[in-house]
Amino acid sequence: MENRLIITKYSDQYYPPTPNNFTLFLRKSVLFQIIRFFILNYKIMKILIKGHS
């Protein structure tokens, strides 16, 4: 069977981190993402307001 090593042959594609199931779950979890939505909005606003005078 083809494995990651055979497919990528030690090329650049062999090395990067890949998200595990928990990370993938959090990326799709509606509850977690609602919280992140507000945090991300807050961070963007912070950058924006400080960005010009």
């Binding site: 959090l26 990326r27 799709k28 979890s29 509606v30 993402q33 609602i34 992140r36 939505f37 991300l40 909005n41 963007i44």
Partner: peptide
Amino acid sequence: GEPGLAGHWL
């Protein structure tokens, strides 16, 4: 840099 569903909503 944060991937996720929230990014799509944004």
